[in-house]
Design a protein around this nucleic acid. Structure first.
Ligand SMILES: [Mn+2]
Length: 541
DNA sequence: ATCGAATTCG
DNA sequence: TTCACACACTCAG
DNA sequence: GAGTGTGTGTCTCGAATTCGATAC
């Protein structure tokens, strides 16, 4: 099915960029760096053609470009535009670059014509790796390449502008386009101009720095690069990070800590885990102290964790670790009751698809949707709450959800709580909301509703089948930690008219597969709430 | 010749 | 903003 | 039970283009 896309006006991308720039200057004038200001001044002085060209470049990857790869019918005199950009100081027409940077601009054939190439036979990837070691920086002509190369000078400012506008670094000007084309539909909330996403220049710099560290982390862990990781840990352990990026910072600290723990750097890992209480920090602290024989310290941490568990992983850890640690300290143990899930065995001939699909075919009237079904019901019922316009929730028109969705006080800030929510909401109203939102909001982004996976009949039937108290129990658990509790839901939902509860959740396990922790966590919730859930172990006939 | 990854565009 | 899950293996008790 | 490491499908658009790797 192909639907015709609407035409965009010529130069639409420049309009979009100006919208972004004007918004940022309007909101964050006091937070702009000298470079940012310099850029704004120069850019606003440009004529249309050079301005268009620059924005074209900014929507591409770069950072260097070959002149002969630029071709825009709506900018007829490209060279004149380039000259303007060079005179404005926005583009460097003879930038110095490393051999690696240059090589990325050339095809393999072009590359092999160069005298200084160390290996004429090598594959391009190998060549790039070699050339990346070369420190020399010089203009392309000095590398004996006569293709004109250019470099926009303000990439960092572009990064900062986009960060200020979107509040993140994964959205960009394409979000304007996709929205205009109707490919991405966003809830039309009104924007909040009272509370800004950033309040100091330092926050912006630190968020950029944190994103860099994150990228470095992925790189380092992929390469098994311990030294880089240790150095990274040093940066993360500094105490001059802003409070406003605390959450993101702690998550990275824990990730780096976890990897360092695996690599045997226990001291550094422990230091990282000691900076915060975000799961799994306290669990890891306990385990590291336990292994080091510091049982009393581990015990103290464990008590705090059990007193006030942050999420299901901490509850589970507390239950399992308590007896072990108590034995070491000769403390009396009173093990928590453990819910044993209902288990079944089945033996079916192997099919073409996955074991879940096979089970879905054998179990009548079942669907394989994992968490998409409960999350979809959750999202449809709570649509208005999620998109309620409270200060600080919506900063730009392209958000899938409110900025503070994952903050622990999300509900509090909206003047409610899980208890209050479901005291005031009846099953009839909830059903009505699902129907209303399905037709009124269809296709719009929502952090919980994945439209393509669901259909209205199924969602309503499922809603009607599961008793409202069961939904409420599921929702309560979701609210405890929207980020961590959205995974681990059983594979299948089966309708069973007239039998038992009329439905059941089923987690399918193929040969050799076992329950994961977050799946256990949901099963514990189900067991607590009397929700029918089973684990089926499948063998192939 | 063919395939897939990366890039660009609207 | 990458992750969630299945699958496979080891080790200890 | 606990830990580690892999592979696989999501990569929330889809068409067009280019390039490199691989096989023949
Ligand atoms: Mn399963």
């Amino acid at each position: 099915m192909t639907t015709a896309l609407p035409d965009l006006p010529e130069g639409y991308y420049l309009d979009n960029f100006r919208r972004l720039l004007d918004t940022v200057v309007d909101r964050y004038d006091d937070l702009l760096s000298p470079d940012d200001r310099d850029f704004v001044k120069r850019f606003r002085a440009l004529n249309q053609a050079p301005a268009r060209l620059l924005v074209r470049l900014y929507t591409r990857k770069g950072p260097f470009f070959r002149r002969d790869k630029l071709n825009y019918p709506e900018i007829p005199d490209l060279d004149a535009a380039l000259t303007d950009l060079a005179q404005s100081g926005l583009v460097d027409l003879s930038p110095e670059l490393t051999a690696g940077e240059l090589a990325r601009l050339l095809t393999l054939a072009e590359l092999r014509r160069l005298d200084w190439l160390p290996d004429r036979k090598a594959a391009k990837a190998v060549l790039l790796e070699m050339l990346d070691e070369w420190p020399d920086v010089q203009p392309a002509s000095d590398w004996q390449v006569d293709i004109p190369i250019l470099l926009p000078r303000h990439w960092l400012t572009l990064r900062r502008l986009q960060l200020m506008y979107f509040g993140n670094e994964y959205q960009s000007l394409t979000d304007f386009v996709l929205s205009d084309l109707g490919l991405f539909q966003y809830e039309p909330y009104s924007l909040d101009r009272r509370q800004r996403r950033f309040n100091t220049a330092l926050e912006i710099d630190q968020q950029l720095a944190l994103n860099d560290l994150k990228a470095e982390y992925y790189q380092a862990q992929e390469n098994g690069d311990r030294d880089t990781l240790l150095q990274l840990a040093g940066d993360l352990l500094r105490d001059d990070w802003c409070e406003s990026i605390r959450d993101r910072l702690d998550r990275l600290r824990n990730r780096v800590g976890f990897r360092l723990e695996q690599w045997g750097e226990l001291d550094t890992a422990l230091a990282l885990f000691q900076t915060n209480d975000q799961p799994p920090a306290r669990e890891r602290r306990c385990r590291i102290d336990y292994k080091a024989g510091r049982y009393q310290i581990a015990w103290d941490t464990l008590q705090q964790l059990r007193d006030r568990p942050r999420d299901a992983t901490e509850i589970r850890f507390g239950q399992r670790f308590m007896p072990r640690l108590a034995r070491k300290l000769s403390q009396p143990v009173d093990p928590d009751p453990v819910h044993a899930p209902i288990e079944h065995r089945a033996c079916w001939p192997r099919g073409n698809g996955s074991v879940e699909q096979l089970a879905c075919e054998h179990l009548p009237d079942s669907v394989w949707l994992e968490n998409l079904l409960p999350l979809g019901v959750f999202g449809l019922i709570h649509w208005d709450l999620v998109f309620r316009e409270v200060p600080g929730a919506f900063h730009h028109p392209f958000q899938q959800g409110p900025a503070d969705l994952h903050d622990p006080d999300f509900l509090n800030r909206r003047g409610t709580s899980p208890q209050r929510l479901y005291r005031e909401l009846t099953a009839r109203d909830a059903r009505d909301r699902i129907r209303r939102h399905w037709s009124a909001k269809f296709g719009r982004f929502n952090p919980f509703v994945h439209w393509a996976a669901l259909d209205e009949t199924l969602v309503l039937r499922c809603f009607d089948t599961v008793p409202w108290e069961h939904w409420v129990a599921i929702f309560h658990h979701l609210w405890l930690d929207l980020r961590r509790h959205r995974a681990g839901f059983p594979d299948l939902f089966q309708f069973r008219p007239g039998q038992d509860a009329g439905y059941r959740f089923i987690e399918i396990k193929g040969p050799g597969d076992r329950l994961q922790d977050n799946q256990r966590d949901w099963l514990a919730v189900f067991s607590e709430a009397g929700i029918p859930a089973e684990v089926w172990y499948v063998d192939y006939a």
